[in-house]
Design a protein around this nucleic acid. Structure first.
Ligand code: FES
Ligand code: FES
Lengths: 153, 153
DNA sequence: TCAATCTTGATTAGATAGGTCAGGTATGTT
DNA sequence: AACATACCTGACCTATCTAATCAAGATTGA
């Protein structure tokens, strides 16, 4: 139901690596592959998706590589996830085309909003964790997220 | 990443049907299949999983069928989901066996807690929506869940 | 020129989800 | 007893998706 796939995990790890890089220094895909133990060609594929989403910039040729295109504090896990994982949230009800009566509840259904809210909920969570916060592991999860939990757990 | 699969949606719909049944009246799998437009054999399969989880009771033979084994107010969506969907939450980090160094972060990783919290978060949400609440669609999503969202959205 | 490095898109092997099937067991009715 | 109804069990199939690989090209720096 909720699954952090390898592309999402890899992308996050790569981004954290880049964020840890001092200044605007670049890292090559080759190097990131070695550092993060992610298959070389797969690193390429993931970085391209991140680039197309505007999260990283690249420079080709010798001494080329990648670097973040925004400050770590402006990049959220949510953006990373959306960049590499097309359908972040998907419910069955939405898969039926209009005429299809398969989901007989379509109108005034009490169940559907539960899934939809859950989707928003997860998005809200992911959009409130930034790369910058991940660089300070002693904080654990973002303080900004904690309010979402309500009372202490 | 977050996907409401058909087994989860079907199970929820079937449970709502049963909850709507007055008193302890039973419904046959055949009938539920027709009412909810879910493949006959698949209904069987799903109801068995719900029964093994203790959420429904069955009676065999003529005039047999299924009914809830608990009051609707004591059955949460979370329990339904866990009954039909084995690995509700799964992160990549957890897939590597101890010796495997694939995930070089394993210790003191700042990323992993983000996924773990998300898992708890989703569980908390699902465990706070009951069948009883779904029977009153005018309420939309449970008031008990709203506090999880923090301020108005 | 040459080597390093990103860029593009197709392809493949394996896992998973969604659904089907065949055969069995229990129970009510006649 | 016989029969129909309906649950029960577990194996099986198939389309889709994921993770990963591959091949060929385009830039850049030395
Ligand atoms: S619209 Fe799909 S369950 Fe109600
Ligand atoms: S332990 Fe897997 S990303 Fe850190």
């Amino acid at each position: 139901m909720l699954r952090i796939g390898s592309s999402v995990e890899y992308a996050t790890r790569l981004m954290v690596r880049l964020a840890a890089e001092a200044d605007g220094a670049t890292l090559s895909a080759e190097r990131m592959s070695a550092l993060e133990n992610v298959p070389r060609d797969y690193v390429d594929q993931i970085l391209q998706r991140l680039r197309r989403a505007g999260l990283v910039e690249s420079r080709r040729g010798a001494q080329g590589g990648y670097k973040l295109s925004l400050e770590p504090s402006r990049i959220t896990i949510g953006r990373i996830v959306k960049a590499v994982d097309e359908g972040v949230f998907e419910a069955v009800c939405g898969r039926y085309s209009a005429g299809d009566t398969k989901c007989s509840h379509s109108d005034g259904c009490g169940i559907r909003p539960v899934w939809e809210r859950l989707g928003l909920f997860v998005e809200e969570y992911l959009d409130n964790v930034t790369l910058a916060e991940l660089l300070e592991p002693e904080l654990g999860v973002s303080a900004r997220v904690k309010h979402l939990f309500g009372a202490e757990r």
